[in-house]
Design a protein around this nucleic acid. Structure first.
Length: 586
DNA sequence: AAGCGGGCCAACCGCCCTTAA
DNA sequence: ATTAAGGGCGGTTGGCCCGCT
Protein backbone atom coordinates (compact mmCIF):
# COMPACT_ATOMS: atom_id res chain seq x y z
CA UNK A 1 0.00 0.00 0.00
CA UNK A 2 1.14 3.41 -0.78
CA UNK A 3 2.21 4.98 2.40
CA UNK A 4 1.04 8.34 1.35
CA UNK A 5 -2.35 7.12 0.59
CA UNK A 6 -3.40 6.93 4.13
CA UNK A 7 -1.48 9.75 5.55
CA UNK A 8 -3.86 11.96 7.33
CA UNK A 9 -2.81 15.49 6.97
CA UNK A 10 -3.20 16.18 10.59
CA UNK A 11 -0.84 13.41 11.46
CA UNK A 12 1.90 13.68 8.98
CA UNK A 13 3.46 16.41 10.88
CA UNK A 14 2.30 15.34 14.23
CA UNK A 15 5.03 14.77 16.66
CA UNK A 16 5.37 13.23 19.97
CA UNK A 17 7.76 13.52 22.74
CA UNK A 18 6.95 10.08 23.94
CA UNK A 19 9.17 7.16 23.43
CA UNK A 20 6.64 4.86 22.01
CA UNK A 21 4.26 3.98 24.72
CA UNK A 22 6.85 3.57 27.30
CA UNK A 23 5.74 4.74 30.65
CA UNK A 24 9.21 5.23 31.74
CA UNK A 25 11.04 8.29 30.96
CA UNK A 26 14.04 7.81 28.87
CA UNK A 27 17.36 8.94 29.88
CA UNK A 28 18.98 11.72 28.10
CA UNK A 29 17.63 14.13 25.59
CA UNK A 30 14.03 14.02 24.69
CA UNK A 31 13.87 13.94 20.99
CA UNK A 32 10.73 14.93 19.29
CA UNK A 33 9.40 11.77 17.79
CA UNK A 34 7.09 11.61 14.90
CA UNK A 35 3.91 9.64 14.84
CA UNK A 36 1.49 8.67 12.20
CA UNK A 37 1.96 6.98 8.88
CA UNK A 38 5.39 6.32 7.61
CA UNK A 39 6.74 8.02 4.56
CA UNK A 40 8.81 6.28 1.91
CA UNK A 41 11.85 8.19 2.99
CA UNK A 42 11.43 6.99 6.52
CA UNK A 43 11.03 3.48 5.26
CA UNK A 44 14.21 3.80 3.31
CA UNK A 45 16.09 4.97 6.33
CA UNK A 46 14.79 2.11 8.38
CA UNK A 47 15.54 -0.47 5.73
CA UNK A 48 19.00 0.86 5.38
CA UNK A 49 19.51 0.79 9.07
CA UNK A 50 18.34 -2.78 9.42
CA UNK A 51 20.52 -3.81 6.53
CA UNK A 52 23.44 -2.36 8.29
CA UNK A 53 22.77 -3.27 11.87
CA UNK A 54 20.27 -6.02 11.72
CA UNK A 55 17.01 -6.33 13.53
CA UNK A 56 16.58 -5.64 17.17
CA UNK A 57 17.67 -2.84 19.39
CA UNK A 58 15.02 -0.71 17.81
CA UNK A 59 15.49 2.19 20.09
CA UNK A 60 18.96 2.55 18.72
CA UNK A 61 17.48 3.33 15.34
CA UNK A 62 16.32 6.62 16.55
CA UNK A 63 19.61 7.35 18.22
CA UNK A 64 21.77 6.32 15.33
CA UNK A 65 19.85 7.49 12.37
CA UNK A 66 17.92 10.46 11.19
CA UNK A 67 14.74 8.64 11.88
CA UNK A 68 12.61 10.33 14.44
CA UNK A 69 10.56 7.34 15.31
CA UNK A 70 10.23 5.42 18.49
CA UNK A 71 11.79 2.02 18.70
CA UNK A 72 8.41 0.48 18.90
CA UNK A 73 7.25 2.22 15.84
CA UNK A 74 10.33 1.07 13.98
CA UNK A 75 9.87 -2.48 15.02
CA UNK A 76 6.27 -2.43 14.02
CA UNK A 77 6.95 -0.86 10.71
CA UNK A 78 9.66 -3.34 9.95
CA UNK A 79 7.71 -6.34 11.08
CA UNK A 80 4.52 -5.44 9.36
CA UNK A 81 5.68 -3.80 6.19
CA UNK A 82 9.35 -3.72 5.48
CA UNK A 83 10.81 -7.03 6.36
CA UNK A 84 11.49 -9.36 3.48
CA UNK A 85 9.27 -12.24 2.48
CA UNK A 86 6.16 -10.49 3.54
CA UNK A 87 3.17 -11.68 1.68
CA UNK A 88 0.95 -8.90 0.56
CA UNK A 89 -2.54 -9.01 -0.67
CA UNK A 90 -5.62 -10.84 0.34
CA UNK A 91 -5.52 -14.07 2.19
CA UNK A 92 -5.86 -17.13 0.08
CA UNK A 93 -8.73 -19.47 0.80
CA UNK A 94 -6.25 -21.85 2.34
CA UNK A 95 -4.95 -19.18 4.58
CA UNK A 96 -8.42 -18.16 5.55
CA UNK A 97 -9.29 -21.69 6.39
CA UNK A 98 -6.21 -22.01 8.45
CA UNK A 99 -6.90 -18.83 10.31
CA UNK A 100 -10.36 -19.96 11.17
CA UNK A 101 -9.11 -23.27 12.30
CA UNK A 102 -6.33 -21.79 14.29
CA UNK A 103 -8.62 -19.34 15.89
CA UNK A 104 -10.97 -22.10 16.79
CA UNK A 105 -8.11 -23.66 18.60
CA UNK A 106 -6.13 -20.90 20.08
CA UNK A 107 -8.29 -17.87 20.22
CA UNK A 108 -6.77 -14.48 19.71
CA UNK A 109 -3.21 -15.59 19.60
CA UNK A 110 -2.41 -13.54 16.57
CA UNK A 111 1.29 -13.78 16.85
CA UNK A 112 1.19 -17.52 17.10
CA UNK A 113 -1.06 -17.71 14.12
CA UNK A 114 1.24 -15.46 12.19
CA UNK A 115 4.12 -17.71 13.02
CA UNK A 116 2.32 -20.46 11.23
CA UNK A 117 1.38 -18.42 8.25
CA UNK A 118 4.58 -17.54 6.51
CA UNK A 119 4.68 -14.04 5.23
CA UNK A 120 1.71 -12.92 7.23
CA UNK A 121 1.75 -10.68 10.21
CA UNK A 122 -0.20 -10.82 13.37
CA UNK A 123 -1.68 -7.48 12.58
CA UNK A 124 -2.96 -8.70 9.28
CA UNK A 125 -4.53 -11.73 10.80
CA UNK A 126 -6.00 -9.73 13.59
CA UNK A 127 -7.50 -7.25 11.23
CA UNK A 128 -8.84 -9.98 9.07
CA UNK A 129 -10.41 -11.72 11.95
CA UNK A 130 -11.88 -8.65 13.49
CA UNK A 131 -13.53 -7.57 10.32
CA UNK A 132 -14.67 -11.05 9.56
CA UNK A 133 -16.10 -11.60 12.97
CA UNK A 134 -17.91 -8.31 12.89
CA UNK A 135 -19.39 -9.27 9.61
CA UNK A 136 -20.56 -12.58 10.87
CA UNK A 137 -21.92 -11.15 14.03
CA UNK A 138 -23.86 -8.62 12.13
CA UNK A 139 -25.26 -11.35 9.98
CA UNK A 140 -26.06 -13.43 13.00
CA UNK A 141 -23.93 -16.23 11.69
CA UNK A 142 -21.77 -18.54 13.68
CA UNK A 143 -18.19 -17.58 13.88
CA UNK A 144 -17.02 -20.91 12.74
CA UNK A 145 -18.46 -22.83 9.87
CA UNK A 146 -20.54 -25.72 10.99
CA UNK A 147 -18.14 -28.23 9.60
CA UNK A 148 -15.36 -26.48 11.35
CA UNK A 149 -17.26 -26.61 14.55
CA UNK A 150 -17.84 -30.25 14.14
CA UNK A 151 -14.36 -30.91 13.16
CA UNK A 152 -13.02 -28.98 15.98
CA UNK A 153 -15.42 -30.65 18.20
CA UNK A 154 -13.42 -33.76 17.76
CA UNK A 155 -10.24 -31.98 18.19
CA UNK A 156 -11.77 -30.30 21.11
CA UNK A 157 -12.41 -33.58 22.64
CA UNK A 158 -9.00 -34.65 21.74
CA UNK A 159 -7.66 -31.68 23.43
CA UNK A 160 -9.59 -32.53 26.46
CA UNK A 161 -6.74 -34.61 27.44
CA UNK A 162 -4.25 -34.04 30.01
CA UNK A 163 -1.26 -32.47 28.56
CA UNK A 164 1.41 -34.24 30.39
CA UNK A 165 4.50 -32.93 29.00
CA UNK A 166 7.96 -32.76 30.26
CA UNK A 167 9.74 -29.69 29.14
CA UNK A 168 13.12 -29.57 30.66
CA UNK A 169 12.28 -29.88 34.26
CA UNK A 170 8.68 -29.32 33.68
CA UNK A 171 5.70 -31.47 33.69
CA UNK A 172 2.22 -30.45 33.32
CA UNK A 173 -0.88 -32.26 33.64
CA UNK A 174 -4.45 -31.70 32.94
CA UNK A 175 -7.40 -33.90 33.19
CA UNK A 176 -8.08 -35.37 29.85
CA UNK A 177 -5.13 -37.53 29.88
CA UNK A 178 -7.61 -39.98 31.02
CA UNK A 179 -8.50 -40.52 27.50
CA UNK A 180 -5.19 -41.53 26.16
CA UNK A 181 -6.53 -42.63 22.89
CA UNK A 182 -8.01 -39.31 22.34
CA UNK A 183 -4.82 -37.84 23.42
CA UNK A 184 -2.91 -39.88 20.99
CA UNK A 185 -5.10 -38.84 18.17
CA UNK A 186 -4.83 -35.35 19.24
CA UNK A 187 -1.13 -35.43 19.40
CA UNK A 188 -1.01 -37.16 16.14
CA UNK A 189 -3.24 -34.65 14.57
CA UNK A 190 -0.87 -31.98 15.61
CA UNK A 191 2.19 -33.73 14.43
CA UNK A 192 4.26 -31.41 12.44
CA UNK A 193 1.72 -28.82 12.90
CA UNK A 194 3.07 -27.15 15.89
CA UNK A 195 5.74 -24.65 15.84
CA UNK A 196 5.07 -22.73 18.89
CA UNK A 197 7.75 -21.24 20.80
CA UNK A 198 7.64 -22.50 24.25
CA UNK A 199 5.81 -20.09 26.37
CA UNK A 200 6.97 -21.25 29.68
CA UNK A 201 5.28 -20.98 31.84
CA UNK A 202 2.19 -20.92 29.84
CA UNK A 203 -0.41 -23.30 30.79
CA UNK A 204 -3.08 -24.19 28.44
CA UNK A 205 -5.11 -27.05 27.36
CA UNK A 206 -7.67 -27.75 24.84
CA UNK A 207 -10.05 -24.96 24.84
CA UNK A 208 -11.39 -25.75 28.16
CA UNK A 209 -13.54 -23.61 30.17
CA UNK A 210 -12.64 -23.29 33.72
CA UNK A 211 -15.29 -22.31 36.05
CA UNK A 212 -14.72 -21.97 39.67
CA UNK A 213 -13.20 -25.22 40.30
CA UNK A 214 -10.21 -26.37 42.03
CA UNK A 215 -8.34 -29.40 41.08
CA UNK A 216 -5.46 -31.34 42.20
CA UNK A 217 -3.41 -34.10 40.79
CA UNK A 218 -0.38 -36.05 41.56
CA UNK A 219 2.49 -37.11 39.60
CA UNK A 220 5.53 -38.96 40.52
CA UNK A 221 8.90 -38.04 39.54
CA UNK A 222 12.13 -39.39 40.70
CA UNK A 223 14.64 -37.11 42.17
CA UNK A 224 15.71 -34.76 39.56
CA UNK A 225 18.06 -32.35 41.05
CA UNK A 226 15.89 -30.96 43.69
CA UNK A 227 18.34 -28.23 44.25
CA UNK A 228 17.59 -26.68 40.97
CA UNK A 229 13.93 -27.08 41.04
CA UNK A 230 11.64 -25.10 43.13
CA UNK A 231 8.14 -26.12 42.94
CA UNK A 232 5.39 -23.98 43.98
CA UNK A 233 2.03 -25.43 43.70
CA UNK A 234 -0.93 -23.34 43.25
CA UNK A 235 -4.45 -24.29 43.04
CA UNK A 236 -6.01 -22.14 40.52
CA UNK A 237 -9.45 -20.99 40.89
CA UNK A 238 -10.58 -20.46 37.41
CA UNK A 239 -13.35 -18.09 37.69
CA UNK A 240 -13.47 -17.38 34.09
CA UNK A 241 -14.35 -18.81 30.80
CA UNK A 242 -11.09 -19.11 29.14
CA UNK A 243 -9.66 -20.69 26.17
CA UNK A 244 -7.08 -23.10 27.02
CA UNK A 245 -5.65 -24.33 23.93
CA UNK A 246 -3.19 -26.91 23.02
CA UNK A 247 -0.14 -24.96 23.43
CA UNK A 248 2.60 -26.57 25.15
CA UNK A 249 1.63 -27.34 28.61
CA UNK A 250 4.15 -25.97 30.80
CA UNK A 251 5.32 -26.03 34.24
CA UNK A 252 2.16 -26.00 36.07
CA UNK A 253 0.70 -28.28 38.53
CA UNK A 254 3.70 -29.65 40.15
CA UNK A 255 5.14 -29.85 43.39
CA UNK A 256 8.08 -31.70 44.57
CA UNK A 257 8.19 -33.34 47.85
CA UNK A 258 11.15 -33.76 50.03
CA UNK A 259 11.22 -37.33 48.91
CA UNK A 260 11.83 -36.16 45.43
CA UNK A 261 8.46 -37.07 44.19
CA UNK A 262 6.79 -34.56 42.12
CA UNK A 263 3.21 -34.42 42.80
CA UNK A 264 0.45 -33.02 40.93
CA UNK A 265 -2.99 -32.97 42.22
CA UNK A 266 -6.20 -33.17 40.42
CA UNK A 267 -9.64 -33.11 41.66
CA UNK A 268 -11.90 -32.78 38.80
CA UNK A 269 -15.18 -31.19 38.79
CA UNK A 270 -16.53 -29.96 35.60
CA UNK A 271 -19.74 -28.75 34.38
CA UNK A 272 -21.69 -30.05 31.59
CA UNK A 273 -24.16 -27.40 31.09
CA UNK A 274 -23.29 -24.02 29.83
CA UNK A 275 -25.10 -22.76 32.77
CA UNK A 276 -22.35 -22.45 35.26
CA UNK A 277 -24.67 -23.00 38.10
CA UNK A 278 -25.61 -26.46 37.02
CA UNK A 279 -23.26 -29.26 37.62
CA UNK A 280 -23.38 -32.73 36.36
CA UNK A 281 -22.11 -35.75 38.09
CA UNK A 282 -18.47 -36.22 37.66
CA UNK A 283 -17.18 -39.12 35.74
CA UNK A 284 -16.40 -42.00 37.96
CA UNK A 285 -17.80 -40.14 40.81
CA UNK A 286 -15.20 -37.55 40.42
CA UNK A 287 -12.54 -40.09 40.15
CA UNK A 288 -10.77 -40.88 37.06
CA UNK A 289 -9.04 -44.11 36.47
CA UNK A 290 -5.37 -44.13 36.42
CA UNK A 291 -4.38 -42.81 39.72
CA UNK A 292 -3.36 -45.96 41.35
CA UNK A 293 0.21 -45.14 41.57
CA UNK A 294 -0.53 -41.77 42.88
CA UNK A 295 -3.01 -42.50 45.47
CA UNK A 296 -0.76 -44.11 47.90
CA UNK A 297 -0.74 -41.60 50.56
CA UNK A 298 1.56 -39.00 49.29
CA UNK A 299 0.14 -35.83 50.37
CA UNK A 300 0.74 -32.59 48.78
CA UNK A 301 3.00 -30.16 50.42
CA UNK A 302 2.04 -27.59 47.98
CA UNK A 303 1.18 -24.12 48.73
CA UNK A 304 -2.31 -23.62 47.65
CA UNK A 305 -3.11 -20.37 46.10
CA UNK A 306 -6.22 -19.16 44.58
CA UNK A 307 -5.98 -16.94 41.69
CA UNK A 308 -7.75 -16.07 38.60
CA UNK A 309 -6.10 -16.73 35.36
CA UNK A 310 -6.76 -14.45 32.53
CA UNK A 311 -7.27 -16.16 29.29
CA UNK A 312 -8.82 -14.85 26.20
CA UNK A 313 -12.21 -15.89 25.14
CA UNK A 314 -11.86 -19.03 23.23
CA UNK A 315 -13.08 -19.61 19.93
CA UNK A 316 -15.09 -22.64 20.58
CA UNK A 317 -16.47 -21.32 23.71
CA UNK A 318 -18.75 -19.00 22.03
CA UNK A 319 -22.26 -19.99 22.24
CA UNK A 320 -23.70 -20.66 18.95
CA UNK A 321 -26.27 -18.04 18.37
CA UNK A 322 -28.87 -20.40 17.17
CA UNK A 323 -29.01 -22.99 19.85
CA UNK A 324 -27.10 -21.61 22.70
CA UNK A 325 -25.09 -24.73 23.03
CA UNK A 326 -21.45 -24.82 23.56
CA UNK A 327 -19.92 -25.31 20.26
CA UNK A 328 -17.53 -28.14 20.23
CA UNK A 329 -18.01 -28.88 23.78
CA UNK A 330 -20.35 -31.73 24.06
CA UNK A 331 -19.25 -32.78 27.39
CA UNK A 332 -19.24 -29.40 28.86
CA UNK A 333 -16.51 -27.27 30.10
CA UNK A 334 -13.95 -29.14 31.97
CA UNK A 335 -11.97 -27.77 34.70
CA UNK A 336 -8.35 -27.37 35.17
CA UNK A 337 -5.88 -26.58 37.68
CA UNK A 338 -2.51 -25.29 37.62
CA UNK A 339 0.31 -25.61 39.93
CA UNK A 340 2.81 -23.03 39.25
CA UNK A 341 6.30 -23.82 39.89
CA UNK A 342 9.74 -23.86 38.64
CA UNK A 343 12.26 -21.30 38.65
CA UNK A 344 13.87 -22.47 35.53
CA UNK A 345 13.15 -20.48 32.51
CA UNK A 346 14.02 -22.60 29.58
CA UNK A 347 15.13 -21.02 26.46
CA UNK A 348 12.61 -20.67 23.82
CA UNK A 349 12.70 -23.64 21.61
CA UNK A 350 10.66 -24.75 18.75
CA UNK A 351 7.94 -26.98 19.86
CA UNK A 352 7.93 -28.71 16.59
CA UNK A 353 10.53 -31.17 17.54
CA UNK A 354 9.87 -31.00 21.19
CA UNK A 355 6.32 -31.82 20.85
CA UNK A 356 6.60 -34.27 18.10
CA UNK A 357 9.15 -36.20 19.92
CA UNK A 358 7.91 -35.50 23.33
CA UNK A 359 7.48 -37.90 26.07
CA UNK A 360 3.81 -38.21 25.92
CA UNK A 361 3.50 -38.42 22.27
CA UNK A 362 6.09 -41.04 22.09
CA UNK A 363 4.47 -42.99 24.77
CA UNK A 364 1.15 -42.75 23.18
CA UNK A 365 2.53 -43.40 19.80
CA UNK A 366 4.17 -46.53 20.98
CA UNK A 367 1.26 -47.75 22.91
CA UNK A 368 -1.10 -46.91 20.18
CA UNK A 369 0.97 -48.85 17.78
CA UNK A 370 1.03 -51.74 20.12
CA UNK A 371 -2.62 -51.54 20.63
CA UNK A 372 -3.37 -51.31 16.99
CA UNK A 373 -1.31 -54.31 16.15
CA UNK A 374 -2.80 -56.19 18.96
CA UNK A 375 -6.26 -55.36 17.90
CA UNK A 376 -5.48 -56.24 14.41
CA UNK A 377 -4.08 -59.57 15.42
CA UNK A 378 -6.80 -60.54 17.72
CA UNK A 379 -9.59 -59.14 15.65
CA UNK A 380 -11.18 -58.49 18.86
CA UNK A 381 -14.30 -56.58 18.42
CA UNK A 382 -14.80 -54.47 21.35
CA UNK A 383 -17.02 -51.72 20.31
CA UNK A 384 -16.40 -49.74 23.38
CA UNK A 385 -12.73 -49.96 22.86
CA UNK A 386 -12.86 -49.05 19.26
CA UNK A 387 -13.37 -45.46 19.94
CA UNK A 388 -13.13 -43.44 16.85
CA UNK A 389 -12.73 -39.81 16.70
CA UNK A 390 -16.28 -39.38 15.74
CA UNK A 391 -17.40 -41.45 18.59
CA UNK A 392 -15.27 -39.52 20.85
CA UNK A 393 -16.68 -36.38 19.57
CA UNK A 394 -20.16 -37.52 20.08
CA UNK A 395 -19.76 -39.23 23.33
CA UNK A 396 -20.56 -37.64 26.54
CA UNK A 397 -17.80 -36.77 28.82
CA UNK A 398 -18.44 -39.85 30.85
CA UNK A 399 -18.47 -42.15 27.93
CA UNK A 400 -15.51 -40.44 26.59
CA UNK A 401 -13.60 -41.27 29.64
CA UNK A 402 -14.80 -44.78 29.80
CA UNK A 403 -14.34 -45.75 26.24
CA UNK A 404 -11.13 -43.92 25.83
CA UNK A 405 -9.60 -45.17 28.92
CA UNK A 406 -10.73 -48.68 28.38
CA UNK A 407 -9.23 -48.73 25.01
CA UNK A 408 -6.06 -47.36 26.23
CA UNK A 409 -6.06 -49.79 28.98
CA UNK A 410 -6.40 -52.51 26.45
CA UNK A 411 -3.69 -51.05 24.41
CA UNK A 412 -1.35 -51.64 27.17
CA UNK A 413 -2.31 -55.20 27.40
CA UNK A 414 -1.31 -57.88 27.65
CA UNK A 415 0.69 -56.34 30.34
CA UNK A 416 -2.23 -54.47 31.57
CA UNK A 417 -1.28 -53.85 35.07
CA UNK A 418 2.35 -53.22 34.63
CA UNK A 419 1.99 -51.25 31.53
CA UNK A 420 -0.84 -49.36 32.92
CA UNK A 421 1.12 -48.60 35.92
CA UNK A 422 3.88 -47.43 33.76
CA UNK A 423 1.51 -45.25 32.04
CA UNK A 424 0.12 -44.26 35.29
CA UNK A 425 3.48 -43.39 36.51
CA UNK A 426 4.24 -41.33 33.61
CA UNK A 427 0.90 -39.90 33.07
CA UNK A 428 -0.91 -37.76 35.36
CA UNK A 429 -2.76 -39.48 37.91
CA UNK A 430 -6.18 -38.82 38.78
CA UNK A 431 -7.05 -38.81 42.34
CA UNK A 432 -9.02 -41.70 43.51
CA UNK A 433 -9.13 -43.43 40.19
CA UNK A 434 -8.11 -46.94 39.61
CA UNK A 435 -7.23 -49.18 36.79
CA UNK A 436 -9.55 -51.62 38.29
CA UNK A 437 -12.31 -49.66 36.78
CA UNK A 438 -11.74 -51.98 33.91
CA UNK A 439 -10.95 -55.61 34.09
CA UNK A 440 -7.37 -56.36 33.31
CA UNK A 441 -6.67 -58.04 30.08
CA UNK A 442 -5.19 -61.42 29.97
CA UNK A 443 -1.52 -61.50 30.33
CA UNK A 444 0.52 -63.20 27.74
CA UNK A 445 3.97 -64.57 27.78
CA UNK A 446 7.14 -62.77 28.36
CA UNK A 447 9.20 -60.21 26.65
CA UNK A 448 9.26 -56.59 27.30
CA UNK A 449 9.35 -53.35 25.62
CA UNK A 450 11.70 -50.67 26.39
CA UNK A 451 10.15 -47.47 25.53
CA UNK A 452 12.57 -44.78 25.03
CA UNK A 453 10.95 -41.50 25.29
CA UNK A 454 12.90 -38.60 24.36
CA UNK A 455 12.94 -35.30 22.85
CA UNK A 456 15.63 -32.79 22.64
CA UNK A 457 15.98 -32.32 26.30
CA UNK A 458 14.43 -35.34 27.83
CA UNK A 459 14.97 -38.95 27.80
CA UNK A 460 12.99 -41.41 29.68
CA UNK A 461 13.03 -45.10 29.86
CA UNK A 462 10.10 -47.18 30.62
CA UNK A 463 9.88 -50.86 30.53
CA UNK A 464 6.63 -52.28 29.56
CA UNK A 465 6.45 -55.89 30.39
CA UNK A 466 4.26 -57.96 28.29
CA UNK A 467 3.78 -60.38 31.05
CA UNK A 468 1.56 -60.53 33.96
CA UNK A 469 2.88 -59.08 37.11
CA UNK A 470 2.24 -62.40 38.74
CA UNK A 471 5.21 -63.70 36.85
CA UNK A 472 7.40 -61.27 38.63
CA UNK A 473 5.87 -60.98 42.00
CA UNK A 474 8.30 -61.66 44.76
CA UNK A 475 11.34 -61.38 42.57
CA UNK A 476 14.18 -59.04 42.64
CA UNK A 477 15.22 -57.54 39.44
CA UNK A 478 17.69 -55.10 38.19
CA UNK A 479 18.08 -53.19 35.05
CA UNK A 480 21.39 -52.64 33.44
CA UNK A 481 22.10 -50.49 30.54
CA UNK A 482 25.47 -50.67 29.01
CA UNK A 483 27.09 -49.88 25.75
CA UNK A 484 30.05 -51.23 23.87
CA UNK A 485 31.61 -48.43 22.00
CA UNK A 486 30.14 -45.10 21.58
CA UNK A 487 31.74 -43.76 18.49
CA UNK A 488 32.16 -40.10 18.60
CA UNK A 489 29.31 -39.37 20.81
CA UNK A 490 29.73 -36.80 23.37
CA UNK A 491 31.63 -37.51 26.47
CA UNK A 492 28.60 -37.16 28.57
CA UNK A 493 26.60 -39.66 26.68
CA UNK A 494 29.48 -42.02 26.38
CA UNK A 495 29.86 -42.05 30.05
CA UNK A 496 26.22 -42.50 30.43
CA UNK A 497 26.08 -45.49 28.23
CA UNK A 498 29.29 -47.09 29.28
CA UNK A 499 28.47 -46.96 32.90
CA UNK A 500 26.04 -49.62 33.84
CA UNK A 501 23.26 -48.31 35.86
CA UNK A 502 21.58 -50.83 37.90
CA UNK A 503 18.57 -50.28 39.88
CA UNK A 504 17.46 -53.08 42.01
CA UNK A 505 13.95 -53.53 42.99
CA UNK A 506 12.07 -56.10 44.82
CA UNK A 507 8.69 -56.98 43.59
CA UNK A 508 6.53 -58.02 46.40
CA UNK A 509 3.09 -57.49 45.13
CA UNK A 510 1.27 -56.52 42.08
CA UNK A 511 0.88 -53.00 43.22
CA UNK A 512 4.47 -52.89 44.20
CA UNK A 513 5.39 -54.23 40.87
CA UNK A 514 3.33 -51.63 39.28
CA UNK A 515 5.35 -49.05 40.96
CA UNK A 516 8.75 -50.47 40.86
CA UNK A 517 8.74 -51.43 37.28
CA UNK A 518 8.05 -47.93 36.33
CA UNK A 519 11.03 -46.84 38.24
CA UNK A 520 13.34 -48.76 36.04
CA UNK A 521 15.90 -46.73 34.41
CA UNK A 522 19.13 -45.09 35.08
CA UNK A 523 19.49 -42.95 38.03
CA UNK A 524 20.24 -39.43 37.80
CA UNK A 525 23.85 -38.98 37.05
CA UNK A 526 25.81 -35.92 37.57
CA UNK A 527 27.55 -35.02 34.44
CA UNK A 528 31.24 -34.87 33.91
CA UNK A 529 31.23 -31.21 33.25
CA UNK A 530 28.52 -29.66 35.18
CA UNK A 531 24.92 -30.14 35.84
CA UNK A 532 24.19 -27.52 33.37
CA UNK A 533 26.15 -29.19 30.68
CA UNK A 534 25.02 -32.65 31.32
CA UNK A 535 22.60 -34.27 33.53
CA UNK A 536 20.56 -37.34 33.30
CA UNK A 537 17.78 -37.96 35.60
CA UNK A 538 15.65 -40.89 36.29
CA UNK A 539 12.38 -41.61 34.60
CA UNK A 540 10.24 -38.67 33.86
CA UNK A 541 13.14 -36.46 34.43
CA UNK A 542 16.05 -37.61 32.43
CA UNK A 543 17.31 -35.07 30.16
CA UNK A 544 20.19 -34.61 27.94
CA UNK A 545 21.25 -31.10 27.96
CA UNK A 546 22.74 -29.33 25.08
CA UNK A 547 23.13 -31.43 22.04
CA UNK A 548 24.38 -34.65 23.42
CA UNK A 549 23.20 -37.31 21.17
CA UNK A 550 23.67 -40.71 22.61
CA UNK A 551 23.95 -43.63 20.36
CA UNK A 552 22.04 -46.59 21.53
CA UNK A 553 22.74 -48.81 18.61
CA UNK A 554 25.24 -50.78 20.58
CA UNK A 555 23.64 -50.50 23.91
CA UNK A 556 22.46 -53.51 25.78
CA UNK A 557 19.50 -53.47 28.01
CA UNK A 558 19.38 -56.18 30.52
CA UNK A 559 16.80 -56.92 33.06
CA UNK A 560 18.08 -59.45 35.48
CA UNK A 561 16.12 -61.53 37.82
CA UNK A 562 12.94 -61.76 35.92
CA UNK A 563 13.84 -64.34 33.38
CA UNK A 564 13.78 -61.88 30.61
CA UNK A 565 16.17 -61.78 27.79
CA UNK A 566 18.53 -58.97 27.41
CA UNK A 567 18.17 -56.92 24.37
CA UNK A 568 20.37 -54.87 22.30
CA UNK A 569 18.90 -51.83 20.92
CA UNK A 570 18.46 -53.07 17.41
CA UNK A 571 16.83 -56.24 18.62
CA UNK A 572 14.43 -54.59 20.88
CA UNK A 573 11.26 -56.54 20.49
CA UNK A 574 8.70 -53.96 19.88
CA UNK A 575 8.35 -50.44 18.95
CA UNK A 576 11.39 -48.96 20.45
CA UNK A 577 12.27 -46.59 17.77
CA UNK A 578 13.03 -43.23 18.98
CA UNK A 579 11.12 -40.39 17.60
CA UNK A 580 12.67 -38.25 15.03
CA UNK A 581 14.43 -35.16 16.09
CA UNK A 582 14.62 -36.42 19.56
CA UNK A 583 18.19 -35.46 19.89
CA UNK A 584 19.27 -39.01 20.21
CA UNK A 585 20.63 -41.10 17.44
CA UNK A 586 20.18 -44.76 17.12
C1' DA B 1 -23.00 14.61 -6.66
C1' DA B 2 -23.13 14.34 -1.88
C1' DG B 3 -23.68 11.87 2.29
C1' DC B 4 -23.27 7.81 4.82
C1' DG B 5 -21.56 3.65 6.58
C1' DG B 6 -18.93 -0.50 6.32
C1' DG B 7 -14.51 -2.54 5.17
C1' DC B 8 -9.89 -2.36 5.42
C1' DC B 9 -5.65 -1.23 7.17
C1' DA B 10 -1.76 1.05 9.53
C1' DA B 11 -0.44 2.72 13.55
C1' DC B 12 -0.80 3.60 18.28
C1' DC B 13 -1.58 2.37 23.14
C1' DG B 14 -1.07 -0.06 27.23
C1' DC B 15 0.24 -4.00 29.47
C1' DC B 16 3.34 -7.46 30.26
C1' DC B 17 7.59 -10.17 30.15
C1' DT B 18 12.50 -10.64 29.78
C1' DT B 19 16.96 -9.18 30.44
C1' DA B 20 20.74 -6.62 31.93
C1' DA B 21 22.79 -3.44 34.98
C1' DA C 1 16.60 -7.98 44.87
C1' DT C 2 15.48 -4.07 42.39
C1' DT C 3 14.94 -1.23 38.54
C1' DA C 4 15.05 0.38 33.92
C1' DA C 5 15.17 -0.59 29.15
C1' DG C 6 13.85 -3.28 25.31
C1' DG C 7 10.65 -5.65 23.08
C1' DG C 8 6.35 -8.55 22.23
C1' DC C 9 1.56 -8.82 22.01
C1' DG C 10 -3.33 -7.93 21.90
C1' DG C 11 -6.69 -4.32 21.80
C1' DT C 12 -8.09 -0.10 19.97
C1' DT C 13 -8.23 3.95 17.15
C1' DG C 14 -8.71 6.57 13.25
C1' DG C 15 -8.22 7.60 8.32
C1' DC C 16 -9.01 6.31 3.56
C1' DC C 17 -11.57 3.72 0.15
C1' DC C 18 -15.63 2.30 -1.87
C1' DG C 19 -20.22 1.03 -2.60
C1' DC C 20 -24.86 2.23 -1.74
C1' DT C 21 -28.64 5.38 -1.35
Amino acid sequence: MNDNKMVPKDQVDSISTEEGSSRRSLSGDRKVLKKGPWTPSEDAILVEYVKKHGEGNWNAVQRNSMLLRSGKSCRLRWANHLRPNLKKGAFTPEEEKMIIKMHSRMGNKWAQMAARLPGRTDNEIKNYWNTRIKKLQRAGLPIYPSNMCFQDSDEYQQRRIVNCFVQQNEILQSRDLNNPDVMFDYLNSNRGDLSYSLPCPDFSMGSMICQGYESQGYMYMNPVDPVKQHWVSETVDCGYHGTIYNELPSTDQFQIESSGKIQLTFDLDYQHDPDPTIKIPEPFGGEIPGSQAFSNGNSSASRSLSRTVKLELPSLQYREPNDGSWSGFPSGPPTAVVDKHFESSPATVSLQSEWNSGLLETLLHETHALGSSKRHASEKSDSSAATTNEEVGESSGLNLYKTGWKEYYDLFSPSSSSAASTFNECMPPVVGGSFHEFPPSKATSGGYNLLFFSHHLFTNFFLLYSASHENFAGKNYSLSISAGSHGDNSLAVAEYLSTPKVEEKHISSSSDFSRTCTLLGPRWIEGPQSTKDYSLTSPLGQHFCNDHKPSLSEATFLVQGLGLESYTWDKMPHACQMPENCGISE
